[in-house]
Amino acid sequence: MSENNTPQSDHLADRFTEKARAVSAIVEPVVDLDQAMAYCLDLCGRRGACRIKISGCDEALSQPADTLCDLKQEKIVAAPGLTQDQFASLAARCREQGMTCIRSGMREHLSGVDIGFTVADFGIAETGTLVINCPDEELRLATMLSEYHVCVLRRSTIVEDAFAADRHLLKFMRKTPDYTAFITGASRTADIERVLALGVHGPLELHILLLED
């Protein structure tokens, strides 16, 4: 894909940022993966994203829903897509701050995890969309069951529109079985009185960390 910070890549990154922010995503630049991890920890700890009791569990719920809420007893960051070294580095930092970091066993946390930390395959500027190839169930679940989804996107991987990614997508699809996700902003609904509410079934917030590369 394109060279570092050419006018074209600047244009794509700017457009991506504008479009993603328009649908409530939080977009921040980071210089390296290290800074992205620091962002994740800061969000979890200082900024209070990680709570023992996750959203909705304060409401008056039915017995089964309440029981499921009770399953979660710790602050959890799930990062299944990282390499061994990357994961080790993140997990060590989490431990320091009293958080649990996992890269597998998502099904033991169906009640939900606080943060899903992932790396996108590429981005689509036209709509501010992240593309995540996730035939791996752990990775898939981390993007679905997290209260906050923090996703690293390499600037150089942003393409103009979905058509420009056609061949890339086909490569995923032809390597079966495949599960590829377009993710644009947080989970949303307008099903009650057409009032927009974020975080129905998926993440309440989507944080995109644009990585200089």
């Binding site: 328009a22 649908v23 709509t127 495949d178 993710i183 644009t184 998926g202």
Partner: peptide
């Protein structure tokens, strides 16, 4: 412009 999710299986 696009929905939050488009899923390709």
């Amino acid at each position: 412009q696009i929905t939050s999710y488009v899923t390709w299986i």
